[in-house]
Amino acid sequence: MATIVGGIGVSHVPALGLAMAKNMQADPYWEPFFKGLAPARAWIDSVRPDAVVIFYNDHGLNFFLDKMPTFAVGAAPAYLNADEGWGLPVSAPFPGDPALSWRIINHLIANEFDLTTCQEMLVDHAFALPLKMLWPDGVTIPIVPVAINTVQHPLPSIHRCFNLGRTIGEAIAADPSDRRVLVIGSGGLSHQLDGERAGFINKAFDTAFLEELVTQPERLSRYSVLDVVEQAGTQGVELLMWVAMRAALGGPVRQVYQNYHIPISNTAACLLALEPSR
């Protein structure tokens, strides 16, 4: 049977992509974040994933307000990155795994998640940057993208995203293949780009949220989405991706590695690696 080998939570700040494009990872401003990648890559090598499921939020590359799905799952043989308008280099195509995609889709819909399914899906920096950071020579294992709306409120609740992740975890566990799946949650942590409160970062909230995410993630459902906006900023709601990632791992987990750093651009950046306790 397929297994989930672990989970990664990681920020996708566009500036990280620009820093990589300019090869500035060792500069004093960037080094505190990028130094965290080596241990994460070494751990990934040790758990030998051969497929990835990534929770991310589209920032206006594939989806616009004309049709805005709450949850969208990719079911394509490959996923293309494209110009987002502000200068990030376009990545090479990413391989898909339609069989795993449909297993996840079928299981989710059987469990009353009403999805948008995508046989073509442009993937933006929130998808591409974590993969480029974790596989700097290019990712060759196939990927299933799961997009969660963070653009237009109302957003799905933490409780709903937890159940989404948990149900995807069940779908993987029921897969008769011997796939070894790594789950990624892309986004966060606290940050706000817009409004008079731009630049808002909340280290105390992030720290408490991360601790509960590891130890008792179901308790996070007490926060409404607006609570998260208030406590983590308008873009801090990307924490929904982390909740879904954590829930996919199921029961108790061991924190393998954490690197939290303020600031990267306007964001409290974090890299977290979790392994299911066995």
């Binding site: 653009v151 237009q152 409120h153 109302p154 706000q192 817009d194 409004g195 008079e196 409160r197 731009a198 808002f200 607006l226 906006v229 208030e230 308008t234």
Partner: peptide, 9 residues
């Protein structure tokens, strides 16, 4: 939420 517009419908 001070200094914040929630982008709703």
């Amino acid at each position: 939420i001070s200094g914040t517009i929630v982008f709703d419908g």
